[in-house]
């Protein structure tokens, strides 16, 4: 009777002493991050989940109120308004940042020897403190004397009231958001430089023109970077806070003087509820709602992204 040797399933294969030792070292090196995550992320998250079910003012002991905060949250018109504003900003901001950054990265790739200089120039604004950006844009967007409206006036266009007209507040903030697109440009530039030149040569030999090379070579080859920036920019847009808070809610000149419902972002409303009105339980519920929204959006993006994104090393 013939016998065959069936290899043991890979998962059950006994680890060698060397592998076990390496695993122990790996866990040891990972330990600081794991401890940090548990203490500074997971712990506070669990605590805030509990607080979202309580009435809590950060001073006195929380009082369990069940789902009341979530019911209030659904009925609060400012929650709906600020969430709507935040989604509106994200929908405008993310595609715009991605498109402009890709255009700039394509131009930078052609610059040649001065590429390093321009790369630095485009990245510099990212280093500007967010508060300074907020103040700067208050000046740039000034209706009468701002640089933007002065520029528009040169071509015969009367610029809008960017910071006071409710219809123009959000476009103004979107413009401000473009200030820090340098990091996305750098990511795209790195991705573009990794596209193998022979793919372009092969496409050219096959008769592909410039658009066809971009559409069928460049885009698929940098789809991983595009997907990454889509997720990261979406999350950061949904968490927009510092610049807008500085412009409309935070500095002594604007505090109490003028802030618009049109500039009320979700995290700003959350911050006010938590630290100005001392509704820490309600703010916790708001934080969890945002967490769930971001989670759903990211899952959808990942699900869809898997269909379109090419990862080097994937099996055909």
């Amino acid at each position: 009777m013939a016998t065959t040797t069936v290899p043991a399933p890979a998962g059950r294969r006994r680890r060698t002493p060397l592998a076990r030792r390496e695993a122990r070292w790996a866990y040891l090196f990972l330990a600081p991050w794991i401890v940090g995550f548990l203490v500074f992320n997971a712990g506070p998250m669990i605590a805030s989940a509990w607080l979202s079910l309580t009435e809590y003012d950060a001073i006195n002991a929380p009082r369990y109120t069940g789902l009341d905060n979530y019911r209030e949250l659904m009925a609060d018109p400012m929650v709906a308004r600020s969430l709507g504003n935040t989604v509106y900003y994200t929908v405008l901001h993310v595609p715009l940042v991605m498109a402009i950054s890709l255009g700039l990265a394509l131009l930078l790739k052609r610059v040649g020897r001065l590429q390093g200089f321009f790369r630095t120039v485009f990245y510099l604004p990212v280093m500007t403190p967010a508060v300074a950006v907020g103040i700067l844009f208050l000046l740039l967007l000034n209706t009468q004397d701002g640089l933007l409206n002065r520029g528009l006036a040169l071509v015969g266009i009367e610029g809008p009231s960017w910071t006071t007209d409710p219809d123009w507040v959000m476009p103004g903030i979107v413009l401000m958001g473009l200030w820090s697109l340098g990091s996305t440009v750098i990511i795209y530039l790195a991705a573009l430089q990794n596209v193998p030149r022979d793919l372009y040569e092969a496409a050219s030999i096959d008769g592909a023109g410039g658009w066809a090379r971009f559409r069928h070579v460049t885009l698929p080859m940098i789809s991983g970077a595009l997907f990454f920036t889509l997720i990261v920019n979406t999350i950061s847009s949904l968490q927009m806070f510092t610049e807008v808070y500085t412009m409309y809610f935070g500095n002594r000149q604007t505090q109490g003087a003028f802030n618009s419902d049109a500039a009320s972002f979700y995290v700003i409303h959350l911050f006010q509820e938590a630290f100005q009105f001392l509704h820490m339980g309600f703010a916790s519920a708001m934080a969890w709602l945002l967490f769930v929204i971001i989670l759903i959006i990211t899952l959808v993006q990942v699900k869809l992204g898997n269909r379109f994104v090419y990862y080097e090393g994937d099996q055909p």
């Binding site: 500074f40 992320n41 712990g43 506070p44 998250m45 669990i46 605590a47 805030s48 509990w50 607080l51 809590y56 950060a58 002991a61 929380p62 967010a130 968490q239 806070f241 510092t242 979700y266 995290v267 959350l270 911050f271 938590a274 820490m280 703010a283 916790s284 708001m286 934080a287 969890w288 945002l290 967490f291």
Partner: peptide, 22 residues
């Protein structure tokens, strides 16, 4: 709730949604 948990919770409210508020 202990003081420590309350402190952690304070951090947690913004840890979920805000970065950079200090």
């Amino acid at each position: 709730m202990t003081r420590m948990v309350r402190t952690a919770a304070l951090v947690g409210v913004l840890a979920l949604a805000v970065s950079g508020c200090g």
